[in-house]
Write a protein that binds this DNA or RNA. Sequence first.
DNA 1: CGGTCTCTTGACGGAGTTCAAAGCTAGTGG
DNA 2: CCACTAGCTTTGAACTCCGTCAAGAGACCG
Lengths: 188, 188
Amino acid sequence: MDALRKYIDRYVALEDAEFDFFYSFLEEKTFQKHEYIQQSGSICTHHHFIIEGLVKSFYIDDSGTERIVQFGIENWWVTNLESFKKQEPSLIQIQTLEKTTVLRIKKQDLDLAFNKIPKIERLFRLIYENWLIAEQRKGFFYMKTSSKDRYLALVESIPNFVQRVPQYMIASYLDITPEYLSELRKSL
Amino acid sequence: MDALRKYIDRYVALEDAEFDFFYSFLEEKTFQKHEYIQQSGSICTHHHFIIEGLVKSFYIDDSGTERIVQFGIENWWVTNLESFKKQEPSLIQIQTLEKTTVLRIKKQDLDLAFNKIPKIERLFRLIYENWLIAEQRKGFFYMKTSSKDRYLALVESIPNFVQRVPQYMIASYLDITPEYLSELRKSL
DNA sequence: CGGTCTCTTGACGGAGTTCAAAGCTAGTGG
DNA sequence: CCACTAGCTTTGAACTCCGTCAAGAGACCG
């Protein structure tokens, strides 16, 4: 609750009553290590705010290989936005890498919150704006940077990331093979 | 005006008075072929809705090569969102490839519209949501698809695209060299 | 008709993949 | 608390995709 309040305060100034009303839609839930938050083929019913823990979003490609598209840590929202918005089955799966506690909200409740509290709509307008900028920077960065530098940037951007996540998942996220990442690391 | 009204109607139901009020902030402007809508190093002051024409967003990399990150056509919004939002100098440049007519709005006027007309804030919450999904799909698609298939998907997604845009720009957008694209096309 | 912009062709090189095998490490049960 | 196993990481060789460079062939415009 404190974590969410602090997070929201960075974007919009909510009255206590507004926050409490919004908070009443949220459900706290804890997932064990390696539990699925989102299964492939099912509809993404909730938007999740991570209070503590670490998750990966990924899909399985045609040759059966896992492809990680995003990691999520404390103070991030995770969902498959496309499936959540359209309420269609999701190709993306979300799984915890550590014991993870989230606050989650259902699609219809979030829509209700948008109607009742304009500041919540503004909050998400701003969140999506920032998220979009981050996604664009990522694409931009991907295009102009070698995989070695992408690796270095990733491990520097999140403290202890290498300790928390196995190498082969980092390789998957960087879109290279574990073998090649191993070679990169040898050359430091 | 009609194009914009039609576009907005797909997202939110505005009263005529609300639309007129929003429209009063917009300025119609026509750029000639090869004119700059956004120069490198300057702040992105406007958000642009393209009524007619075609533009490219790009930057110049360390070796002096142009890198196209996005094309924009009719009924798309174009801006460098990061520069527009933070009012910081932009690394991205935007240039027309054809004579192009836009409706443009200043940052402070858009913020004003958000405050005066909640439905406009909702409109942009939805636009950013869709844009984000599109950006994520693009990243996703990039990861799992060969450059040959990316080329085919691109030319199929926009009618006459190959006629409107020179090959070497398509190569830049696909993040391959013109030489290699030429080879791909030979193998059909 | 001459020049600039665009597209193609070919030789070579480097980044990254694939496959197979061996070496580590950490969790589990006995 | 040790031993075993399964999962993770490293190594190396052969191969593929795609970039770089250099040169030539069209095509459009004044």
